[in-house]
């Protein structure tokens, strides 16, 4: 990890946000409240037209909210000029957001340039970021976006958003245009970066597996409203409404879990002797129930001896990978 410095994450608080587009007869975002703790990766999930992108875009004021307040680190976003606000918040959109007439290095340098950094500092930061996203600066700095693969372009998009060390990153369906294998690599990369930098991330997607895979918490939206805001574990195990159940196809997910054993998903890991125990032959469905009842992690027991550990991260990987 080249970038050892943690920039930390912002707290985001939305209060009673309403957005209505001109000419529309209903609110695109309808009285939404949301609290995002610092350093969490929150996924906003819902079908197209549910207002999830609109909600995201109110935070950097690309979409004006009709009423309500939005605070980032306890400061109202309307207290700043929009351009200044946006330079402090990373923004990543689907695939083509890179500027095709600028090289990779120039793309990444845009925000630092807008902020008036000097050349040496920008050059250093660009190199640091290319290493962070695991692209060789020698080979990639002077390429144009069209010379990159979809996955590489998307990583450069993330690097550009991170250039000025934002404490908040907004990602709007960022991996929608890349194929499934590259997408899961990018998802893992996002989680890795988020853990390393401590950045707060708001991530919009309509892809249920993507949400389950990366989210610390999931916001589920329908027709402009938040219908559930909870951890993936609870969203899956205790869907708040039939709508959530259907959107996530939770019954199917739980059915799939009942076909998998603890043995298949656990990690052979040092055991602390503190956690609740479960047989290696138990199904993941049983493990999920134990977790819903409050167990953070389970000790997998074979012949009376603990041989591994199972956490929710292991369960959700099993769900995503069994599709």
């Amino acid at each position: 990890m080249t970038d050892a410095r943690k920039s930390g994450g912002s707290t985001v608080a939305l209060r009673d946000i309403v957005v209505r587009y001109p000419g529309s007869d209903r609110n695109a975002v309808d009285h939404v409240d949301l609290d995002v703790p610092p350093g969490t990766l929150v996924v906003v999930l819902g079908p197209s037209g549910c207002g999830k992108s609109t909600l995201l875009r109110t935070i950097n004021r690309l979409v004006p909210s009709e009423s309500g307040t939005i605070c980032v680190d306890a400061q109202d976003v309307r207290d700043f000029p929009a351009t200044q606000l946006r330079r402090g918040i990373g923004y990543v959109i689907q695939a083509v957001g890179l500027f095709p007439h600028l090289t990779v290095a120039q793309n990444i340098a845009v925000v630092p340039q807008l902020l008036g950094w000097d050349r040496a500092r920008i050059a250093e930061r660009v190199e640091e970021l290319l290493r962070l996203i695991q692209l060789d600066p020698q080979r990639y700095a002077d390429r144009y976006p069209r010379e990159l693969s979809g996955g590489e372009a998307q990583r450069v998009g993330v690097a550009r958003a991170l250039a000025a060390r934002p404490r908040l990153l907004l990602m709007d369906e960022p991996f929608g245009a890349v194929d499934a294998i590259v997408r899961s690599a990018l998802q893992d990369e996002t989680v890795r970066l988020q853990r390393a930098l401590g950045t707060t991330i708001l991530f919009v997607t309509h892809d249920v597996d993507e949400a389950l895979r990366i989210a610390d918490r999931i916001v589920i939206m329908s027709a402009g409203r938040v219908v559930q805001y909870d951890t993936p574990l609870h969203v899956l195990g205790r869907p708040a409404s039939p709508y959530v159940e259907e959107l996530l196809d939770t019954k199917d997910a739980v059915r799939r879990l009942s076909l998998l054993r603890v043995r298949d998903a656990m990690r052979a890991k040092a055991v602390d002797g503190q956690s609740q125990r479960i047989s290696v032959e138990a199904t993941l469905r049983e493990a999920l129930s134990a977790m819903l009842d409050g167990a953070d992690a389970l000790e997998a027991i074979e012949d009376g001896r603990p041989i591994g550990r199972l956490a929710f991260d292991d369960v959700r990987r099993a769900i995503v990978e069994s599709t």
Partner: peptide, 26 residues
């Protein structure tokens, strides 16, 4: 493409910077 202009606005370019640095060059 709209997405490029959206990205330009989203990362904090002013209207004028969007025109002179992105829209016209493209």
């Amino acid at each position: 493409p709209h997405a490029i202009l959206d990205a330009a606005a989203g990362i904090g370019m002013s209207e004028r910077q969007i025109r002179s640095r992105v829209q016209w060059p493209l």
